[in-house]
Design a binder for these strands. Structure first.
Lengths: 336, 336
DNA sequence: TCCCTATGATGAACCGGTTAAGTTCGAATG
DNA sequence: CATTCGAACTTAACCGGTTCATCATAGGGA
């Protein structure tokens, strides 16, 4: 391996016949460098193939130009089935790329990795941290904020931690979905709720409850964990509890697909016998049988917004809202 | 924001009553430090909450403890439909995490981002670079290798670039799939091929061709780009060209699902009229109607292996193979 | 003519670690 | 008892940039 020696500022300076300081100013596009010198320096830079050493730069500027995105442990488990985190990554990636920042991905969840993340951020490896949908009342975001590290969460943090976040209008989306079912004449509307240690799970269940209450209709709840498998199981237990139910709202698309499978196995027609609505609007929901009616949440946008907010925080933007809530929208297809 | 000043080595040293060098040795777990002193230092570290500054450390060690994973531009487009890149990320992530390395994600493809990636790597921001399935004969991996940067590719590089890589046995997998169709008595076996500027596309088509030739059966090819939509379109054109075809091998699961949809629309039963086999074995293929027979490739394993190989390269492991080819396996379900 | 002020370049301190070379000191050796 | 040696620690150089205080030079005004 021919590890070519990388030229340093010093060498560029020598070649251009100026001082290190001047080269630094040219490289950083500073003003007040005579045109002639600037050219000479640029020529030397090109000839030597000079690229500034990031570590040296960070050491003095205290900036790394990179941002961490923390995924919960569950991402590991669910990744193969779930399209949520990839979309977050994509959205954040695009935004950060535009700002010339790097995206560092970390999995967290276990106590060990928890500590790792904290040390990593504190070591000054990144300029800020984004948390993707956490479980429970995770203390880590708050801890980092207290240490003076810019942080943003996806999903309103549970437990009242005072951390800026980006979220979507779960409640409104669910209300629209349930009202759609009610308007369609459904009387026995059940729900497959998500994990009750995540805002997404909590708020969607709350939306279901409030809307049915408002409509004066009975409620029936089964619990899932956002995965297809859990949706299938939950649907079975709902059918057993109330064979006459005529609609179900699932708090995630994957659970809705599980529910579709369970209904098919139980010989129910969708939407004739039972209407089904999901939440997410993943690509695959357009291709299910029948195509899934669902609440669209702008996941990639969420990633983008998180990145944008975090960049604002890092730059000390004064007029930055603590929270941004993105709209959701009911997408009506054939399943309800 | 209370940006608490982070303690430095100097302060720890002062508190422990020793020199900077000694603290450094304790922190790095070096030998030859008397137990008493070691304890005193550790106490000081804990009391002050000292965490080494990574930039300073990198500056002298020339190591950053992080690794870049480069995704092709298409990842952006396809991400919402595709489960390939997430699995690669997950696999690599797990392995790197175990080695206490960080994963930096970058999108490349455009000329601009190309340059960005090169500069980033050369700036010493990462210790090595992994490329996820590239299009065409990308010169970037070769360039980085020449610059002395450890590199590994997923998928044998096109154009004979001498870059170490990890790939799967496309040919063998496809051969098994096509033989399965032949053994099932299929006589008119078409294929939906992947992009011919990617090894995965090329090798899978080659496997189809060779195996059919061996069986003395006629060939028929349509081209897709691995997405569901392209699979649907390709299937339609295949049906038009040969309404009597009785089997199709799609070079990706998503294209196979598109094909299933096209066949359904055309009134063909699967597998009775037309047998379908895909390639990937994504989670969703277990839940399609009918469940998809497909060639499983160990994607997460590929990510893991890439990471492992790269770490070996970085550590100068002498007995490192240039190429690793992982096995594929036919998974028979109901579609063929 | 002389002094003052921009303008542009330079020298040197500094960021926070690592590590080679040097120092100290007590135990072992001849 | 003098000498050698090795363990344990300190000193100081260095990594490669940024930036502030300083300085040189040319131009303008009194």
């Amino acid at each position: 391996m021919v590890t070519r020696e990388r030229p340093t500022l010093e060498e560029v300076a020598r070649r251009a016949g100026v001082s290190r300081a001047t080269v630094s100013r040219v490289v950083n596009g500073s003003t007040s460098v005579a045109a002639g010198i600037r050219e000479a320096v640029n020529r030397a830079v090109d000839e030597l193939g000079y690229v500034p050493n990031q570590a040296a730069r960070s050491l003095v500027t205290q900036r790394t130009e990179s941002i961490a995105l923390i995924l919960p442990e569950t991402a590991n488990r669910v990744f193969s089935d779930d399209l949520f985190f990839p979309a977050i990554i994509r959205g954040a990636g695009v935004e950060l790329e535009a700002a010339d920042k790097q995206l560092v991905l970390m999995m967290a969840g276990s106590a060990r990795s928890h500590d790792r993340v904290e040390r990593y951020a504190v070591a000054g490896h990144v300029d800020g941290v984004m948390f993707a949908s956490m479980h429970g009342a995770d203390p880590l975001p708050g801890t980092l904020v207290r240490l003076g590290i810019p942080v943003i969460c996806s999903g309103r943090p549970i437990g009242g931690a005072d951390v800026p976040y980006v979220d979507v209008d779960h409640f409104g989306g669910v209300a629209a979905a349930v009202r759609h079912l009610v308007a369609g004449g459904r009387k026995r509307i059940a729900t497959i709720a998500g994990p009750q240690d995540m805002v997404a799970g909590i708020d969607r269940l709350a939306g279901y409850r409030a809307t049915l209450e408002e409509a004066g209709l009975p409620q029936r709840t089964a619990l899932g964990d956002f995965t297809r498998e859990s949706g299938l199981t939950a649907m079975r237990s709902l059918l057993e509890a109330d064979p006459a139910l005529d609609a179900v709202f699932a708090a995630s698309d994957m659970m809705a697909h599980g529910a579709l499978a369970a209904l098919r196995q139980a010989g129910r027609r969708v939407p004739d016998d039972v209407a089904v609505i999901g939440f997410d609007d993943f690509e695959i929901s357009r291709y299910s049988d029948p195509p899934l009616t669902t609440v669209r949440q702008p996941i990639a946008d969420m990633g983008r917004t998180m990145a944008r907010q975090l960049l604002g925080l890092i730059n000390g933007d004064p007029a930055l809202p603590d929270a941004v809530v993105l709209p959701t929208e009911l997408v009506v297809r054939d399943s309800a």
